[in-house]
């Protein structure tokens, strides 16, 4: 999303540490809010065993579809499993999927984008494939990929990486093409630096900021698309709760037990929202 940076940074004199922190918060409200919220959600996922004593898999036939109560704040699903526990543990899977997909897509995308940006012959081929893959809507591509393989967290990650990589390649390649003509790179070439050295020493550092911002987008979209895959019956396997498949199993019970759908959805939305805010904040801060 090419939204122009509007928060202008004026270097002021740091008076004290507290004042500096305060100024940072005031100047980067979206970044701080996003980061804080995300850390809270991540903590609830990592600390799940401390927050609930229940096993997210434990079936309790007597408690089927029972509404939220003091004992089970988010109620129970149609197998009597505790929705609070499933939501917290589900966060682990969803966050893991989001972060891993972002990291892998960035790595692969950057590697391919860098090389193809520098080798013209390769570039034509790569870009045709990229164009082709990008023409297939990502949800359909991921869905078709999931139909290929045994459902597991790893295969979902792989299926989500495939449609994201071409997008990263595009971003990286565009930057490389403009940087290649940069005086800094021309200077390096003049003093005899080889292509790999130029790539690693001069171009890669300049790509870090746009890649981080792109990473937040990939991460947010991966968490969302995982939930779509689960909803359509092709996401993470149902015995491993992710927000997506907890909701997918609960969607049939919207009238009888809206809580099965409501709470994981809220958590998912807050997470994606804070990642997006973080991304926006970073973009403004890093002036990408």
């Amino acid at each position: 999303m090419a939204v122009a940076a509007e928060v202008l940074e004026a270097p002021g004199m740091p008076s004290s540490r507290a004042a500096r922190v305060r100024r940072f918060i005031v100047r980067n409200p979206t970044l701080v809010a996003g980061l804080a919220c995300l850390m809270l959600l991540a903590a609830s996922a990592i600390g799940a065993p401390l927050l609930t004593a229940r096993d997210p898999q434990q079936m309790r036939p007597m408690a089927r579809l029972s509404p939220p109560s003091a004992d089970q704040p988010f109620g129970a699903d149609h197998f009597g499993r505790d929705v609070f526990a499933r939501t917290l543990y589900g966060g682990r899977i969803s966050l893991r999927v989001g972060i891993t997909v972002a990291l892998i897509s960035l790595l692969i995308g950057a590697a391919i984008g860098l090389t193809s940006g520098f080798y013209r012959a390769l570039d034509t081929v790569v870009m045709r494939v990229v164009d082709g893959l990008m023409a297939i809507p990502s949800v359909l591509l991921a869905l078709a990929l999931m139909a290929l393989v045994k459902a597991s967290v790893e295969t979902v990650i792989a299926a989500l990486v495939v449609p994201e990589v071409p997008r990263v390649i595009r971003v990286v390649r565009a930057s490389v093409l403009s940087l290649r003509e940069h005086t800094m790179v021309e200077g390096a070439r003049a003093i005899g630096a080889g292509t790999p050295r130029i790539l690693i020493r001069y171009i890669l550092p300049a790509l870090v900021a746009p890649l981080i911002v792109q990473g937040t987008h990939v991460c947010a979209s991966a968490i969302l698309v995982e939930s779509y895959l689960s909803f359509l019956g092709a996401g993470t396997p149902p015995h491993i709760p992710s927000w997506g498949n907890v909701m997918a199993e609960g969607r049939a019970y919207v009238q009888i037990g809206v809580w099965i759908l409501l709470f994981p959805g809220l958590f998912l939305m807050l997470t994606v929202l804070s990642i997006n805010l973080l991304g926006d904040g970073l973009r403004d801060r890093l002036k990408v």
């Binding site: 079936m59 197998f79 045994k150 459902a151 396997p237 149902p238 015995h239």
Partner: peptide, 19 residues
């Protein structure tokens, strides 16, 4: 899911393959 739970109780390891 019930079968998996019961198999666990009689000492059988289960590879639940969902699709």
């Amino acid at each position: 899911l019930v079968t998996r739970e019961l198999l666990g109780k009689i000492g059988v390891n289960v590879d639940l393959q969902a699709s």
